[in-house]
Design a protein around this nucleic acid. Structure first.
Length: 221
DNA sequence: AAGTACCC
DNA sequence: TACC
């Protein structure tokens, strides 16, 4: 009897080519897509974080997210007791968010194109930083105006178990590792899938120590 | 509710 | 599923 959840056996997954792994309908994992440029990417992220520091955000209901976040781009994702939204100003500094570094933008756009999403013009890049124990519960990305644009996610540092569910909370959830340099792209019929990250396991990464850094690019509108 | 608690 |  099939359960409601299950591991995605990547050795049995459909390989479109050597690096592109189908996760679901219109959802693709590009193993190690950004690995060769990881050093430059991490340096660009550090530069953004000097201008828009990491912070923990409150969610409606009063709890605090375990993940530390910042943003770059025209819009940044913010949350407080009043709710979630995209904002043009960083509430921490009162200034506009830093621009998306060109290298990151180029990777996100080229990655989206390789997944079949032409002319992706992200205006928001969320920076989610996980330390051991940090997690992201199953949720939908539903605050963007343009749901035709995909979500492009880049992972660096410690490995994480990604949870990729269905269009309802009750749908089955696939779990698979996201490793340093991996890119995940989902959109179209998968755009509104529930997804999340299991609590990060302790570890030490040569480049990032006890951290996982995730960049997600969206068209917030 | 990108949160937790608790119930069935 | 409920949470105000």
């Amino acid at each position: 009897m099939a359960g409601k959840t299950g591991d995605l056996n990547l050795t049995e997954a459909l390989f479109d080519d050597q690096e592109r792994i189908a996760i679901a309908d219109s959802a693709w994992l590009f193993r190690g897509y950004a690995r060769a440029q990881a050093s430059e990417i991490v340096e660009a992220v550090r530069s953004v974080l000097r201008q828009a520091p990491l912070r923990q955000m409150q969610v409606p209901g009063g709890h605090w997210m375990s993940v530390r976040t910042s943003s770059c781009g025209d819009k940044g994702w913010v949350s407080d007791s009043r709710g979630y939204r995209y904002a043009c100003e960083d509430p921490l500094t009162g200034r506009a968010w830093p621009a998306i570094p060109p290298l990151l933008l180029e990777l996100a756009v080229s990655g989206a194109a390789r997944a079949g999403f032409a002319a992706f013009e992200p205006d928001a890049c969320l920076i989610n930083c996980y330390q051991p124990g940090a997690k992201m519960g199953l949720h939908q990305d539903r605050d963007e105006k343009d749901l035709d644009a995909p979500i492009v996610s880049l992972s660096f540092g410690l490995p994480a178990t990604f949870m990729f569910g269905g269009l309802t909370r009750r749908g089955s959830v696939k779990r698979f590792p996201l490793l340093h340099g991996d890119m995940l792209v989902w959109g179209g019929p998968s755009r509104m899938v529930y997804h999340g990250v299991a609590p990060l396991q302790a570890g030490e990464h040569p480049m990032l120590g006890a951290w996982r850094v995730n960049l997600t690019f969206r068209r917030a509108g």
